[in-house]
Amino acid sequence: MLKTLRTIAAVGIVSEPPPEADLALRVREALPAKVREVLGRALAIRHVDAGSCNGCELEIHALNNPFYNIEGLGIRFVASPRHADLLLVTGPVSRHMALALRRTFDAMPDPKFVVALGDCGCTGGIFGENYASCGRVANVIPVDVVVPGCPPSPVQILQGILTAISTTPARGVAHGP
């Protein structure tokens, strides 16, 4: 126990400040600023790997490390879509996962956001569309924010999530109801 405490004390606090939102990542303006303001205070995320190579997952895991400390920002990953405000989707959507992804999206209560992660989630990536792949996430469910990268860094992922809940509307995109 003493060793454990000593290690904790020796390491200290390594958490870094979060990045600013980047409105260029927002591709859809479905929710009004007021809703985003409320959800932004404590956001619950459900992650679905819809066909990823597992590269993006490595960097999503990193969000929970002490440097990015995503829970310290009031954002946490939850086990059920029914508890979630934001759906974080990786991969090209494989045809075998399309139904599960659609059902996960449908199970989430409104209002809700979708962030598509990685080159594959944004465009289908190197896998593209074929007999087994539906390509980008937006081909299967509506997407609010896209975060390119292979894999995107934790800072970029965090920026995408913060962009989804930031209260400033994206330029050139119509305001939601």
């Binding site: 819809a50 990823s52 494989s94 075998h96 996962m97 190197i126 593209g128 074929n130």
Partner: peptide, 11 residues
């Protein structure tokens, strides 16, 4: 398994 089959060998 097979849920993330995305046609890699065909690709």
């Amino acid at each position: 398994l097979g849920y993330v089959h995305k046609g890699i060998e065909r690709r």
